[in-house]
Computed example of a mutant assay.
Amino acid sequence: MDRDRDRDRDGRARSGRPRDGLGRPLPYGAEGVPRQPEGLVRTPGETVREAQRLLDAGMPFHAHEVFEDAWKSGPERERDLWQGLAQLAVGLTHAARGNATGGARLLRRGAGRVAGYAAAGAGAATYGIDVAGLVVWARELADRVEAAGATVPDAAAEAPRLSR
């Protein structure tokens, strides 16, 4: 395998390096956490359960990949929901990596993207996701990580509850 440019079966560039729980690349040969399979089509309930399991384990980067599959395979009308949830997971990832600015920005962007689903009420498909609670969580965490002298959050301890 060419270490300069890993490729998947279809020839697309794809890093073969192992990753840690926060998605950071590790040296070749190091033991990382298992990657999420890409392109899986899950039901919304399966998506929420798997993402919650990963968030609870302190692996928000991997939860983001689960949400990414949902936005790519789901109906267009739900795209902002799944993309926003992916942005919340990546925001937590960046904050837990010590990138307060990027983490806060993504947390706020994700909160803004999903907020419309809370406002839409029963007419929007949210699959039991506590959208309003996630918006509050994301904005509060963004404020905390940007505060002067803030400590880097622990991803598992800061993991949100997705469902009501």
Rank of each mutant, 00 (worst) to 15 (best):
P75A: 10
A86F: 00
S15V: 11
G84T: 12
P160Y: 09
E31V: 14
R3M: 13
S73V: 11
E65L: 08
A57I: 02
G98I: 09
G58E: 02
D10M: 07
D20E: 05
P60Q: 09
L22I: 09
R42I: 05
E68C: 08
G123L: 10
A111F: 07
A111S: 15
V66M: 03
V90K: 00
G21R: 06
V136H: 01
D20I: 03
G112N: 07
T47F: 07
G84D: 11
L22R: 08
G16N: 08
A155G: 12
D143K: 14
G112H: 03
A124N: 10
G110V: 11
P37E: 14
A156Q: 01
V33D: 07
L40S: 06
A95Q: 05
M59S: 10
R49P: 01
Y28V: 00
F61V: 03
G116M: 12
G110I: 08
P25L: 00
W71G: 04
L106A: 13
P27D: 13
G58N: 01
A155V: 09
V66T: 08
A132N: 14
D2F: 08
P34T: 06
V136Y: 00
R49E: 13
R42P: 13
A89D: 08
K72H: 05
Y127R: 15
A155F: 04
E65V: 06
T151H: 04
D8I: 11
P25W: 00
G84A: 12
G16F: 01
D8M: 12
V66K: 01
P18Q: 10
E140T: 13
G58T: 01
Q83R: 12
E38Q: 09
W82T: 14
V131D: 04
G112Q: 03
V135I: 10
G74P: 03
A132Q: 15
G116I: 10
V41R: 14
A124I: 12
T93V: 13
R79N: 11
V131E: 04
R113Q: 13
A150D: 07
G91W: 04
G112P: 03
R42N: 12
E50S: 10
A95W: 01
L92I: 12
A30N: 06
A142L: 04
D20F: 04
G128K: 10
F67T: 14
A96V: 03
D2Y: 09
A104T: 04
D130R: 07
R109Y: 13
L162D: 11
R161C: 00
R109K: 15
V66P: 02
D69M: 07
M59L: 00
W137D: 05
A124Y: 09
V48G: 08
Q87K: 10
